[in-house]
Simulated assay, not measured.
Amino acid sequence: MKNILPLSVLMVLVSCKKPDIKTDVPDCIEQKISKLYNDKVQNPPAKVYKWEVDGEVYYLFTADCCDQYSYLYDEECKVVCAPTGGFTGGGDGTCPEWQGEVVETLVWEDDRD
């Protein structure tokens, strides 16, 4: 008898595409990016940036459209704050007051149509 994968397993393997992430990220951040990649394209398309500041690493996920917050996550995928977005565009006002300069690197951008 031939070994055949069940249809449900095959559908999962085919439907879950992997995004092209430009650098190593924690597993939980990769899972968040994969979810974005397998959902409908946002308007504007989603981007994820790595922020390095004051010896810490964070990940900024851009917002989907109008007046929504762009959330910043730590390496354990805990929300730190929303540095941008919202009605004023200035975020939620809860971000730490960093001493150093934020070094921003693009990790992933959704280039689908």
Rank of each mutant, 00 (worst) to 15 (best):
A82P: 03
S34E: 11
V102C: 08
G89H: 00
Y58I: 02
W108G: 12
K78V: 10
P19R: 07
A82D: 01
C95I: 02
Y59C: 01
V9T: 08
K17Y: 00
D54T: 00
E30Q: 14
M11L: 15
I29D: 02
V80W: 02
N43C: 06
G93Q: 11
G89F: 02
C65L: 13
K17M: 06
I21A: 03
V12I: 12
E109T: 07
V53I: 09
E30G: 12
E52N: 14
T84R: 13
P26A: 04
A82Q: 01
Y59P: 04
P83S: 05
R112L: 04
G55F: 00
T62F: 06
S34V: 04
K47V: 08
G89A: 02
E97I: 12
Y37R: 00
E56W: 00
T84N: 14
T62N: 03
C16H: 03
Y49R: 01
A63E: 13
V41R: 14
E109I: 05
C16Y: 02
D39F: 04
V41K: 10
P83R: 05
V25P: 03
D111H: 13
C77S: 07
K32A: 10
S15F: 13
D110Q: 07
D67G: 08
Y73K: 10
E97G: 10
S15I: 14
L10A: 14
K40Q: 11
C16S: 07
I4K: 11
V107S: 02
K32R: 13
K78Y: 06
E52T: 14
I4H: 07
T105R: 06
V9M: 07
V80R: 02
Y58L: 05
D39E: 15
Y71I: 13
V57Y: 00
L106A: 04
